[in-house]
């Protein structure tokens, strides 16, 4: 199975000339054999040959070795040399800014965690220690504190952008759903983090927040009990908030960001809605691109490569004919007549 990852750099040399679409059939064969791919022996020979002919290319060898196993080139082409549509503007930097600030929060958070003690008796003094004694302590606390506010602002702006650009519409609905969960989790980060300095303000605000939670119907009281770790605010409450704040919620956010970005790369980012493709007079758009061909780049397909059968033949102009399996995964356009 390991060798079934398509290796773009290699395929040209070793794969038999693809007849239009024929190789696809092979790639998708149900038993998963690598019909059109080189055999293992051939590959080894190839690598040996390369070594002999370019004896100095140790570095190239290493990259080849890695490539053969992790398909770095494929990931590189899929992530970086993908195209962003015409008209992409500054509003499209908001999403990655959120990601940037989330990484900043992760880094400053790790440093704070090195000095912070999540116990009701010591939390406050450990924060004083960070603020007053640790080298750059107050600065790092400031970065983390104000970073939280900036992240909220940027995430709202990013959401507003995708809303007004209609970017949540087909085929990106899922990315919107993931996004809403992300914004809620980000607010949960704010809520759980607010208690940690354990000063008056954070303590009492958290009590009110908890009472608010408890006033909810049906689940409210249980949720509040869970957050407080019991019917009353206690020492465990603080460590519970800490665990949520530095392990559970950031873990969820990280995973969901990965899913979010996977979809961004796979589906591509929208063009601003007012940008229209110039098309020859009278022609229907479906004449320009044959119906039934999913709008997925060859570069994007390599992300799917790991699924096993994702063999894609790259034609000269970069268009690709994906296999049936990836077609389904990419939620390709419906065939004629399919209800929406």
């Amino acid at each position: 199975m390991a060798l079934k990852i398509p290796i773009p750099g290699r395929k040209k040399e070793t794969a038999p000339e693809p007849g239009d679409g024929a190789a696809n059939g092979n790639g998708a064969s149900p038993n998963g054999t690598n019909g059109d791919g080189p055999t293992r022996a051939e590959k080894v020979a190839k690598v040996k040959e390369a070594t002999v002919h370019h004896g100095t290319a140790a570095a190239k060898n290493t990259t080849d070795w890695l490539d053969e196993r992790v398909n770095g080139t494929g990931i590189y082409t899929a992530m970086l040399s993908r195209k962003v549509p015409k008209g992409t503007n500054w509003f499209y930097t908001l999403g990655s800014s959120v990601m940037f600030i989330f990484s900043m929060q992760a880094i400053t958070g790790v440093f704070l965690a090195m000095y912070y003690t999540p116990s009701a008796t010591e939390a406050y003094s450990s924060i004083s220690h960070i603020t007053n004694e640790v080298f750059l302590g107050e600065f790092v606390r400031g970065l983390h504190k104000w970073g939280a506010s900036l992240m909220i602002i940027l995430i709202f702006l990013h959401m507003a952008r995708t809303f007004f650009f209609g970017a949540y519409k087909y085929p990106r609905e899922l990315n919107w759903v993931i996004g809403v969960v992300l914004i809620v989790l980000t607010m949960v980060m704010g809520l759980t983090g607010y208690l940690l300095p354990f000063d008056q303000r954070s303590f009492w605000a958290t009590i009110v927040a908890n009472n608010i939670t408890a006033s909810g119907p049906v689940l409210g009281p249980y949720l509040a009990d869970f957050l407080r770790a019991g019917p009353d605010f206690s020492a465990t409450t603080l460590s519970r908030f800490y665990a949520l704040h530095m392990l559970v919620v950031p873990g969820l956010i990280g995973g969901l960001i990965a899913a979010h970005l996977f979809l961004v790369v796979k589906l591509g980012t929208t063009a601003p809605p007012w940008i229209k493709a110039p098309r020859p007079k009278g022609s229907r758009p479906s004449e320009l691109v044959p119906a039934g061909v999913p709008m997925v780049d060859a570069t994007e397909m390599s992300l799917n490569g790991h699924s096993g059968n994702g063999h894609v033949e790259v034609s000269e102009n970069g268009a690709s004919l994906p296999t049936a399996e990836t077609d389904g995964a990419a939620e390709g356009p419906p065939s004629e007549g399919e209800a929406s």
């Binding site: 993908r82 549509p85 356009p333």
Partner: peptide
């Protein structure tokens, strides 16, 4: 959907590399 996707494909082809 089809119309959107084909239009998008064109705009993407005309776009720049990430």
């Amino acid at each position: 959907k089809e119309e959107y996707l084909s239009e998008y494909e064109i705009l993407k082809k005309k776009g720049k590399s990430f």
